[in-house]
Design a protein around this nucleic acid. Structure first.
Length: 408
RNA sequence: GCGUCGGUGGCAGAGUGGUCAAUUGCAAUUGGCUGUAAACCAAUCGCCUUCGGGCUCCGGAGGUUCGAAUCCUCCCCGGCGCA
């Protein structure tokens, strides 16, 4: 018996969209579902007790961050993430593979729509120069693993697939991910292929390490992550390889930011056709409404993304008509609710004028309310998608939604 | 009234003869954010512009100088001290 099971309740008759239930030892996740990002064992600005009213069924914490602080041993002594953060529901952990990318290849690169260029190596002032290694990155990859420089204190650390699995065992999430090498969609074919093959080798090692720990293997499910960038042949090869290894689920890997182009996600999704039909699929870092709709259409079951909490903290609010910047002058006396018609706990009590004021005066409640609203918006979106699939009207729902939602 | 210090762009506050339309912070205006290095980052922020530049500008008025936010004179205003 595996520690999770995935039951598909309904498949769309006109697309690969599906609705299901992912059963874990800490409860069920009704899919499609939005997974809140809880990097450091907290969803930024949100109390655990608020998850339910915001529609948050599950969250994903991060291996790299929790390993650095407070340390996975401490969390293990606390009885695992569930006890540590006081959440009884399903928890996922990410492997640290994304940090291989964001602290490695992606480090210091400010790819803007305007310049299209990467910043100079010393273009990032966030860190003490002494922290950065001579190559200008905080992570360097080799075939055996990755050497990190802590972004916190500059100390040196090393992750291997086995180490990532060990840490994630200590964290104790219900579902965790194999250590992978994430890449930018814009990377060359050669680079993409190399990272994919390395990811496959690491997946095999990760799985072996997991199977060796009988106790963890019985309690925790493990997803493998595929790569391949925007190259369809690599993507499909990666899906076939990862899909056949015996993982409990599948992670759609990559980084789908708009700065890498408008269809980096679209070009990756065809790989899902190569997977066993009943394998649960998680879209890593996929969370803009239009991308959730696209992913769901292609059979992605769960989505995690920083976007509701990060945008929320920085003043961006999701509405059915598109994103708005609540600190902007036009909302100073706007008495509409954040998103007219929204029934989230914030919209039920406050209007734009108030939240605008909170941002202008730098009150911490502003980012909190915005994060709450955004989380609700996305969990509500996935639950609406789920209902639509169950009624076999997904396409209509998508078209209706997109007809009023303005993408930027 | 006397003495003294000071009046700089929305605010605070640098600059004290040319490299100054004027450092910096805040405020303001806008943009960005996709497995969180992010309660963050970026651009703009006197007026005009064919984006090359042009014009006006550092309390006010004069003056010195090739050149003044910077030096001098007078005036106005403010802080402090003494009467």
């Amino acid at each position: 018996m595996r520690p999770i099971s995935f039951q598909i309740e309904k498949r769309s008759t006109v697309s690969l969209a599906r609705a299901g239930v992912l059963r874990t030892l800490h409860g069920d996740i009704k899919t499609p579902a939005f997974v809140a990002v809880g990097t450091k064992a907290d969803v930024k600005g949100i109390q655990t007790a608020q998850f339910s009213e915001l529609g948050v069924q599950t969250l994903i914490a991060n291996t790299y961050h929790l390993y650095l602080s407070p340390g996975s041993e401490l969390i293990e002594r606390a009885g695992g993430l569930h006890k540590f953060m006081g959440f009884d529901g399903p928890i996922m952990t990410d492997s640290g593979g994304f940090q291989v990318f964001s602290l490695g290849e992606g480090f210091g690169k400010k790819v803007s729509k305007f310049s299209g260029e990467q910043a100079p190596e010393d273009g990032v002032a966030v860190f003490d120069e002494d922290l950065a290694t001579s190559h200008g990155k905080l992570a360097i990859v080799d075939d055996d693993g990755v050497t990190f420089t802590s972004h916190i204190d500059g100390s040196l650390h090393r992750f291997t697939p086995e180490r990532s699995v060990e840490i994630q065992h200590q964290l104790g999430g219900d579902i965790f991910f194999a250590f992978d090498q994430c890449t930018a969609p814009t990377a060359t074919y050669e680079f993409q292929k190399e990272a994919m093959e390395r990811t496959h080798a690491w997946a095999k090692r990760s799985l072996a390490a997991h199977r060796q720990n009988i106790d963890a293997n019985n309690k925790q499910a493990m997803y493998g992550i595929a790569q391949g960038g925007q190259f369809d042949d690599l993507r499909r090869e990666s899906a076939r390889t990862i899909g056949a290894m015996g993982f409990d689920g599948f992670g759609l890997g990559g980084s789908f930011s708009k700065k890498y182009g408008d269809d980096s996600l679209q070009s990756a999704l065809h790989m899902l056709k190569e997977l066993p039909e009943s394998m649960p699929v998680h879209g890593l870092g996929v969370g803009e409404p239009e991308d959730i709709l696209l992913g769901a259409e292609h059979g992605v079951d769960t989505f995690d993304c920083v976007v509701p909490t990060r945008n929320g903290r920085t003043g961006g609010l999701y509405t059915k008509a598109g994103k708005i910047q609540i600190p902007n002058a036009e909302y100073r006396e706007d008495t509409q609710s954040l998103d007219p018609g929204c029934e989230c706990p914030v919209c039920l009590h406050h209007d734009r004028r108030y939240v605008h004021h909170l941002f202008r005066t730098h009150e911490m409640l502003g980012p909190i309310l915005a994060s709450m609203h955004n989380l609700y918006f996305l969990t509500h979106l996935t639950s609406q998608i789920r209902e639509a699939i169950l009624d076999d009207r997904f396409t209509q729902f998508r078209d209706t939604f997109l007809s009023v939602y303005k993408m930027r």
